[in-house]
């Protein structure tokens, strides 16, 4: 109970507690059988070919985008209510050469941090095919990703 109790002891005892609870099965992730099925290479054949097929189809359509700079807005619902994300993409030969997010006067926090962080990230996306931005899922500040996908879809249809 003493606040000065050795931290390492605290960690060990708590770790033991968690392990016990996991065995009790109160909260589990995937069933063990799923992990056992996983490594079998035969099962993975179909899964492995699926992304390749997807890429081929998308690469074919990618060359149809016209060069230029496009803007679109998408909406998403946050606890603040409806918010808008503005996306501006510059396309050249079917690839994204620049990405900008329209500033939102209603969101000073985002604007401030964009300024602090902008330098490091732009280089990572430049030159990637617009369709490569499509993955199965996005993990991050996920409230906005629905709005972003809306905006990109609008741009893709405009750029045809």
């Amino acid at each position: 109970m003493s606040p000065s109790a050795p931290t390492s002891t605290l960690r060990r005892s708590i770790f033991a507690g968690i392990a016990g609870l996991s065995l009790a099965g109160t909260v589990a992730g995937c069933a063990p059988s799923a992990a056992e099925d996983g490594p079998a290479p035969a099962d993975n054949g179909t899964a492995a070919t699926t992304p390749a097929g997807g890429e081929t189809a998308l690469a074919g359509s990618g060359s149809n985008y016209k060069d230029g700079t496009y803007s679109a807005d998408g909406n998403y619902v946050s606890p603040n209510g409806n918010e808008t994300v503005g996306v501006q993409l510059t396309l050249a030969s079917g690839t994204v050469t620049d990405v900008r997010i329209t500033e939102h006067p209603s969101n000073p926090n985002t604007r401030k941090f964009q300024g602090e962080f902008a330098g490091g990230i732009a280089a990572q996306v430049v030159g990637r095919n617009i369709d490569e931005l499509k993955v199965s899922k996005v993990a991050g500040s996920s409230l906005t990703s629905g709005g972003f996908n809306q905006a990109v879809e609008k741009i893709k249809s405009e750029a045809r």
């Binding site: 992730g29 995937c30 069933a31 799923a34 099925d37 996983g38 079998a40 099962d43 993975n44 899964a47 992304p51 994300v85 996306v87 993409l89 990405v99 900008r100 997010i101 985002t110 941090f113 964009q114 962080f117 902008a118 990230i121 732009a122 990572q124 996306v125 931005l133 993955v135 199965s136 899922k137 996005v138 993990a139 991050g140 500040s141 996920s142 409230l143 906005t144 990703s145 709005g147 972003f148 990109v152």
Partner: peptide, 29 residues
Amino acid sequence: SGDLLACGSRRVAVALEHPYNPAQAIGVL
């Protein structure tokens, strides 16, 4: 809404969203 659990044999490609720019991903897992 972005908290993901994938069970079974298939892999799911997940973009790691840029913290301040949802137009971008910083990686794929």
